[in-house]
Design a protein around this nucleic acid. Structure first.
Lengths: 205, 205
DNA sequence: CATTTGACTAATTAATTTAAAAAGTCAGGA
DNA sequence: TCCTGACTTTTTAAATTAATTAGTCAAATG
């Protein structure tokens, strides 16, 4: 009888993989390296995960779920409409920065985005995100603070703008391997600017 | 004494190159092909342009100048604030679609963006664009239609949002070689949605 | 029986070489 | 001055090879 269960072991592996992936990216991390970090053999890794894709998927699932939940958390905790939007923007940028090397949701993502399981997961989480942002808008619409706009459509527009600024800055200005701290600061500032106008745009007069 | 001047010949060459470039991109167009289109020898081409880069630069200069001027034109012609913004958005998308294969202003642009001459040209035109959009905002601010916002900053935010939506849609949804007509329609719709909120956001109550 | 492993093969990826295509030159002609 | 065919040089693409990494399995351990 081992001291750790299968589930615990899998969690340990995911944790170790996550460290490597976020530092060096998925492609530049080998299964042997992850095994070495845990002081086990590579073959053992394959006892817990059928292949690398499955492990990557588990890691991605962890990150993405955290990403969405964290946004939901700060949004539901927020006192007024605008600060809620500012907060989710900050969460988004922090996650993007932290897991930059994995290029999640990016064009040439490290994660195999064509994998149907990953697609389903991603779509589900995106839908959830859209839902609670729409709910946030609905909340302040009901209180009369916002105009009676289409909540889902407006939530989608907000997300589009934030994603757009992110991708725009990363792709246009980022030439080096790893973007500078100040680039992320610049993105934050631009997002704040956009959000400010966005919020004014849907406030009732 | 030839029937066409050097300048006219250069224009003809630029015109022929433009056709090839916009259809197949710069990289997939050879100097020989351009020469063939004009029924002249490749060596003649090199009599009018020192190298391919110079020709590409001329073509790029033409397109970009048109791009900026067309925006300025529709903006100055516009009767009310919002329709002016909608119009420049349409101009931007039309140009982006027309010259898609050249990937102007893109990450891996066909045009050598590191070329100092191109950089200078691009920066100049960007500055000009920013100026007349800011002037448009100023115009309707003076008339009391808009809030007293920082015009340059607000103009930049608008451009960022439009560029962001463009890049976002192209990079995230476009996998095939050439994007579909409906993708550009989708981009137009999204831009309209954003502009609507943007305008409401800076209107005085 | 559940778990681990070293030693193995198969598949990918990176590096190197080779062949093809395209850029760019030039002496000479109209 | 303007144009060209024939040429050289440079770049890009294809093919070959070498190296790395993913993934397997029979045997071992506890």
């Amino acid at each position: 009888m081992s001291s750790t269960s299968v589930d615990q072991k899998q969690e340990q592996i995911v944790e170790a993989a996550l460290k490597r992936f976020s530092h060096f990216g998925v492609a530049k991390t080998t299964m042997s390296e992850i095994a070495e970090d845990l002081s086990i053999s590579k073959a053992s890794l394959y006892y817990y995960f059928p292949d690398k894709t499955a492990l990557v998927l588990s890691v991605g699932e962890n990150i993405l779920t955290d990403f969405i939940n964290e946004q939901q958390f700060v949004l539901e905790k927020s006192k007024d409409f605008e600060s809620g939007i500012y907060d989710i923007s900050d969460v988004r940028i922090s996650f993007g920065q932290k897991y930059f090397m994995m290029h999640i949701g990016d064009v040439q993502s490290d994660i195999n985005t064509s994998d149907p399981k990953f697609k389903v997961l991603l779509e589900g989480l995106k839908a959830k995100e859209l839902q609670f942002i729409a709910a946030h808008i609905q909340r302040f619409q009901d209180s009369g603070f916002l105009k009676p706009v289409n909540t889902l459509e407006t939530a989608q527009v907000l997300i589009d703008m934030l994603v757009g600024i992110w991708i725009c800055e990363i792709h246009v200005h980022h030439k080096s391997l790893f973007p500078s701290e100040q680039l992320f600061e610049k993105i934050k500032t631009k997002c704040k600017c956009v959000i400010s106008i966005f919020c004014d745009g849907i406030k009732s007069n």
